[in-house]
Amino acid sequence: MELNTLWFILIGVLYTGYLVLEGFDFGVGILLPFLGKNDTQRRMIINTVGPHWDGNEVWLITAGGATFAAFPHWYATMFSGFYLPLFIILIALIIRGVAFEFRSKDNHPFWRSFWDWGIFFGSLIPALLWGVAFANLIRGVPIDANMNYVGGFWNLLNPYALLGGLLSLTGFMLHGAIFLALKTTGRLHDNARNAAMRIWLPAILILMVFTVFTYFETDVLIKLGVNPGVIPIAAVLCGLVTGWFIRQKRDGWAFTLNALAIVFSSATLFLILFPRVMISSLNPAWSLTIQNSASAPYTLKVMTIVAAIFVPIVLLYQGWTYWVFRKRISERLEDLHY
């Protein structure tokens, strides 16, 4: 395979991994004020993602770094173009990360509730804005002949992108609720499953509306055709089956299926995008592609060797941590490290 295509796929995999993994810890953060009725419950909720959130976030940092290395123009255009939304995401991620670490290190109720809200908004805002950003990516944004974004801030908040934001928001909330059901016991577990049941319907409806919208707002018809193929259909199907598993009280299966729904949705997005990386709404010829935005072959070759060696190693040890912490969270306070 040509290296440019390989790196497009690899970056797609990194963003997808990020959405699947950080997706559930965003969801857990958003559900914190709704499901955590008292301080112990809130600590339990936070501790379900405690060992994982930081490692999950590194998927984003790696995706960003890989974009920079393999497609410098993509990185430059997207990051300078989506300037204010990225700034807001950064602030949210900063406050959220610190909040996880700080909130239980002081007993004062105001301190704890301050950081709990930090976790809530720090999860809610990126969960919404990533959807907005990715929807804009496939819809196309004003990019001029010099590869610069010339659209301003409000241009990014079009109805289609906002719907994309709602989709990622509800999808991640569902993901988080199922994860909580999987990791907790007793009353918290029941409440989490109920929440999952309630979020599932709006999430799947939004997914369907967004899918229909996509036919009008993007060039998916030209790219994939009326029948978009296996992957987009699998995304919707997995979303549907998730609901069935939630009702069957099969938390593990529900989580797997919802993760797959996110994987296939994200894969669809990159399918629509390919071989472009940023679509110009002004002139198709001004779009950034895997050719005109890429690094020289030598850099791609070096990066390919590094990735081939280290990506499997990372997957192994990160997977192992999920195995170590596979048990449900207990209520014993000395076990709650956050």
Binding site: P51, G55, T62, A69, A70, F71, P72, V302, M303, V306
Partner: peptide
């Protein structure tokens, strides 16, 4: 500089950030 500068940044994330964040959680 993306051709050059991006590579160590990506490698830093892949080799180092994953390592420290994952094992810190552990």
């Amino acid at each position: 500089v993306g051709n050059i500068f991006g590579a160590p940044l990506a490698i830093e994330a892949l080799l180092a950030f994953f390592l420290e964040s994952t094992f810190l959680g552990l």
